[in-house]
C-alpha cells in the first residue's frame, strides 16, 4: 500500500484525535513523559533536572503498565526513580553547586544540536515507515495491529521470572557479573589516593557552617 504522506498525516490525526478511538491514558502519560523530558534537558538547576528525570521514569513505568508489563514497570520505578536518580542527586550534591541563575548550562552549539537531533528523529521515522524499496509501509499490518495478539493476556510477571530463570539464565549471570564489575570500577574510580591532598573539599569544622564561598577561593 502506497499512501501519500499528507494523507497519512491526516489519517494519523484522525486516529489520534478522532472520536472513534480515545486513547486518553496513553496521551496523558505521553504528555507527562515528553514534558518532563524537555524539562530534564532544558532545566537550569540540575536538581530540578533530576526531579524531572524521576517524573519521566515514572511516566515510562505507566507506559509499561499500559503495555501489560507489570514486572518491568516495578523494576523501572525501583531502579530508575529509586536508584539512578538518587545516585545522580548524590553526584550533583558532591560536585559543584549549580543553582543556575548565572551559570550557562548549554554550550554554543545548541541550535545546531537541536537541528541535528530533529533530523535524526526524522530519519528514524523514515527508516521505520518505509521499506527497502521505498514504499510506504506505515499503514500496513505491522503498524496497524490494533489489538495485541492474545498471548500474554494475564499479567506476565510469572512468565518473565520463569524465562529469566530458564531460558535466559546465562544472560542473567553475565548481567550480575557486569554489575559487580561496575561497582568495583566505580569504587576504584572515585577512590581518593592516599598521598594526594584533596583540595576541593574544604575542611569542615564541627561548629561552623561550611560557607560555599570557601570553595571559590581555593582554585
Amino acid at each position: 500500500m502506497d499512501h501519500g504522506v499528507l494523507e497519512y498525516f491526516k489519517w494519523l490525526f484522525y486516529n489520534a484525535f478522532g472520536a472513534a478511538q480515545p486513547h486518553w491514558w496513553f496521551f496523558a502519560i505521553s504528555f507527562v513523559i515528553i514534558a518532563s523530558g524537555i524539562g530534564t534537558v532544558i532545566a537550569r538547576n540540575l536538581l530540578h533536572a533530576a526531579f524531572f528525570l524521576a517524573l519521566c521514569c515514572i511516566g515510562v513505568a505507566g507506559i509499561f503498565i499500559l503495555l501489560n508489563a507489570e514486572f518491568l514497570a516495578a523494576v523501572q520505578v525501583l531502579v530508575y526513580a529509586g536508584g539512578i536518580v538518587i545516585l545522580i542527586i548524590f553526584a550533583i550534591m558532591l560536585s559543584e553547586s549549580i543553582t543556575g541563575k548565572n551559570s550557562i548550562t548549554h554550550n554554543k552549539q545548541s541550535i545546531t544540536a537541536l537541528g541535528v537531533s530533529i533530523m535524526m528523529g526524522i530519519v528514524m521515522v523514515l527508516i521505520l515507515f518505509y521499506d527497502q524499496n521505498g514504499y510506504f509501509v506505515g499503514t500496513t499490518r505491522w503498524a496497524l495491529t490494533p489489538y495485541r495478539i492474545p498471548f500474554p493476556t494475564e499479567p506476565n510477571s510469572q512468565l518473565v521470572g520463569q524465562s529469566l530463570m530458564s531460558t535466559y539464565t546465562l544472560a542473567f549471570w553475565i548481567a550480575s557479573i557486569v554489575l559487580t564489575i561496575a561497582m568495583i570500577g566505580a569504587l576504584i574510580l572515585s577512590r581518593r589516593e592516599d598521598d594526594e591532598k584533596d583540595e576541593t573539599v574544604p575542611e569542615i569544622k564541627t561548629d561552623a557552617i561550611c560557607e560555599p564561598e570557601i570553595r571559590e577561593e581555593n582554585p
Binding site: 486513547h23 505521553s30 515528553i34 530534564t40 544540536a113 537531533s117 530533529i118 503498524a143 489489538y147
Partner: peptide, 28 residues
C-alpha cells in the same frame, strides 16, 4: 482503547530526540 503501535514508536522517537539534544547541547 489500546493504542496502535506507531503511537509508541512516535513516543520513543520523540523521547530519543529530546535525549539526543540534551547529550549534544549540555555542558555539565
Amino acid at each position: 482503547s489500546d493504542p496502535p503501535i506507531f503511537y509508541y514508536i512516535y513516543l520513543g522517537t520523540i523521547l530519543f530526540v529530546i535525549g539526543l539534544f540534551g547529550c549534544l547541547s549540555r555542558r555539565n
